[in-house]
Computed example of a mutant assay.
Amino acid sequence: MLNGTRIPIDEAVFTVLLENSVAANYSDYKNALESSSITFDSLVALARTGDIPYVLFFAPLPVAEAQVRSKTDKLLAGVTKETFAVNSRDRVHLRDIELIVKDLMRKQELLKRNDSTLTRNRIVGLLSRPGRTIEEDAAALMEALGLSHDSIRVARSKADALEVVTARLEANQVLVSRSVPNAMPQNLTKVKGNFSGMAIRDAKVPYIFLAGGNRGDSEEPAGRMVFTLVLMAVLVAQKKFMPVTYDGSSAGTDVGPEYDIVGAILMPAKTLRGLPLGMLDDVKAAAEVLKVTPSAIAVRAMRLGMISPAAADAHLQELGREFSQRPRSQTRTLGTMKAVRRYNGREFSRRMLDVLDAGRISRGEFCRVVCLRRIRPHQINAFREAVL
């Protein structure tokens, strides 16, 4: 309704435009479908939220459908529509991560446009042709990254092991972003199930986004993120760029060679065979040694024939019960500088500070595009301290 005048909108146009956007999660959209009406101000607000020119709502259906296809094609240039699942039947709707995908793609383009030191990425496609054995593929990826089994195991904690793997990826131009509520253009509250992260395509600077800490997590997040990060490194090496769902509480066998490559990197068979795994406490102890979750140890041991499927399933069920009974710790709120740095990733932030120092972007543009207006120009030095 505009100035008291009712203007008809084709319901098919209305739904096709908004169902394919983040605005589909908003109450104004659902209320409009139920009442078959919407105010002009609410329509414009939904259009802004969904990044849709509001005049499209008055266009013929074929025009609206063509615009949706164009938008989806651009989005899928960075992320494949299919979801890579490990022991999970969940699927990720791109609209629930759309703004994050777009922002990280913009960051990729900004960096490539301004940083002449970037080279073609050696990790992308490294494993596009499988080697003779899983162990050969694992060794090839680790050598390319400069990552060793010992460097992960000697980390003081799983959180430190995550930093070790992140540092080796970023040293090889694979950028790593982590979910931080309110530091991103879109929070993950609408994402269902076991969404763990995604890899975004680029020949020079692929971006890995780690979801981490989802409300649906059925196991401790640090060990899960170590596994997920290595899994996505494997996918990048295979030139697979897609959302990842990972249910570590299931011993399902519907996993591909990617899982076993991750296992060979984080839980090598020779090492695992040298550890006692007869009791659940043994599984937990092995997880502390290898910096993964006990669930990952149980599934890997089952796949190596070290424990039976029934024993693995019993371990996973008990681990799930134990985790569900733990008191939920309060999520630590990061300061603004650390939050922005964690979402951007340290390597992207560092390189863009170099671009800023070289005068290739302004301080205002740095705050607007690099930091999503979370900081102001006078705070750039404080941000620099958080990055370095």
Rank of each mutant, 00 (worst) to 15 (best):
R91L: 09
M142Q: 04
L147D: 05
R113I: 00
L175V: 12
A77M: 12
L94N: 05
E136T: 06
I134Y: 05
A59H: 09
T80N: 14
S151Q: 11
A85V: 09
S148C: 07
Q67I: 08
F57S: 10
S116F: 14
M142H: 00
E98L: 07
I97C: 11
R95E: 12
V180M: 13
D103L: 09
R69F: 05
L111V: 11
Y54H: 15
G125H: 02
S177H: 09
A138L: 01
Y54V: 04
A167Y: 13
R129V: 15
R120W: 03
Q108C: 07
S88Q: 05
N121H: 03
A59N: 03
V124C: 09
F58I: 07
A64G: 06
D137E: 15
I97W: 08
T80W: 06
R168H: 11
T133G: 04
L94C: 09
R120M: 06
A64C: 02
P60M: 10
G131L: 00
L61W: 00
V55Y: 09
R178F: 00
K102Q: 13
L162M: 08
S70G: 12
L175G: 09
N121V: 12
S148M: 08
R156T: 07
N172R: 15
Q173D: 15
H93S: 14
A85H: 02
V165N: 00
E170A: 10
E82Q: 13
T166Y: 02
K81W: 08
R120S: 11
T72M: 12
N87E: 06
T133Q: 07
V154K: 11
D150H: 08
N87V: 03
R153I: 14
I100G: 01
T119I: 11
E98H: 13
V124P: 06
M105D: 09
E65M: 10
G78W: 06
E143T: 06
S157D: 08
L126Q: 06
F58C: 05
V68R: 03
T117S: 15
L126V: 04
A77K: 14
S116H: 11
Q108N: 02
L56F: 15
L141P: 04
K107L: 15
L111D: 01
L75Q: 10
K102M: 14
E109Y: 10
K158R: 15
A171W: 03
S148I: 04
I134N: 02
A167E: 07
L127H: 01
A139V: 03
A144D: 02
G146T: 04
L99P: 00
R122L: 11
E135R: 13
S88M: 05
L94E: 02
R132V: 02
I123Q: 00
